[in-house]
């Protein structure tokens, strides 16, 4: 599986009573982009538009040059991990991951092997029977990532999934995502409010401000740039 290129072409969106947002940018196939920017700059809205949870008022979204207009979230080449509530509280770890393979939970032997592999990959071996409430915050997010792995989609969207974790654990999780990205070549977009996370794991960084993508460049280039309005005020440098 290789990642898809994502192009947001002059996409407009506004929440009722909210400020208008306007997105126009490209995420290269196989890139790992960290989205940074002040609160309310539109980071989560941008990935919700890509996932199909929000409909743009105008503009077009392309996956590998294919127009995504009217495509249901389930049919997009995308899987997403949220900040919270990624798991169904009454289902055990194995079943939560299995929903990524079959919503009816009709699993073949191959499917079960796939789930076990994903659990091994994400450090969840032996935890299959545990309920979400019996897991730590980091383990819960690992389950969500394992489910994203079994869904085998070319694009992985991460909406601040590690924000509630401590610094060391957050690093571990970023390392895990980074490893998966390298192995599978997926296109990864990570929303983060910590630029250090983006520097640590991402290949690219995009800075959003006031509902626009102000810049989208390779990580080193973006953080050393002096021509990006608002970036240094945001970073406090």
């Amino acid at each position: 599986m290789t990642g898809s290129a994502i192009k947001l072409d002059e996409m407009d969106f506004a929440y009722p009573g909210g400020e208008p947002l306007h997105f126009s940018t490209v995420f290269e196939a196989g890139s790992f982009t960290g989205l940074i920017g002040p609160s309310g700059s539109g980071k989560t809205t941008l990935i919700n538009l890509i996932a199909g949870f929000e409909e743009p008022a105008s503009g077009t979204l392309y996956f590998d040059d294919v127009n995504a207009a009217g495509t249901e979230p389930a049919d997009r080449p995308v899987t997403m991990v949220f900040q919270d509530n990624n798991l169904f509280a009454h289902l055990d770890v194995f079943t939560n991951i299995a929903l990524g393979v079959s919503a009816s939970l009709d699993l073949s032997t191959g499917d079960k092997a796939l789930i076990t592999t994903a659990m091994d990959k994400t450090g969840l071996s032996g935890l299959g029977k545990r309920l979400p409430r019996e897991l730590s915050g980091g383990q819960r997010q690992r389950v969500a990532i394992a489910r994203a792995l079994v869904r085998d989609k070319p694009v992985l969207l991460l909406d601040e999934p590690f924000a509630a974790l401590g610094p060391a654990l957050r690093r571990d999780m970023l390392q895990l995502v980074s490893t998966i990205h390298k192995e599978r070549g997926m296109t990864v977009i990570l929303v983060s409010h910590d630029p250090a996370d983006v520097k640590f794991a991402a290949t690219h960084a995009a800075f959003l401000d006031a509902g626009r993508v102000v810049a989208n460049r390779p990580v080193d280039e973006l953080f050393s740039a002096s021509d990006i309005p608002g970036l240094h005020a945001y970073l406090g440098t």
Partner: peptide
């Protein structure tokens, strides 16, 4: 997030009842 998850995972009305509403 549960509804977004359901949308991603192709849940039908039956799946929504079984996995989200009934619990």
């Amino acid at each position: 997030e549960n509804w977004r998850l359901a949308a991603q995972l192709s849940f039908t009305s039956r799946h929504v009842f079984r996995h989200i509403e009934w619990p």
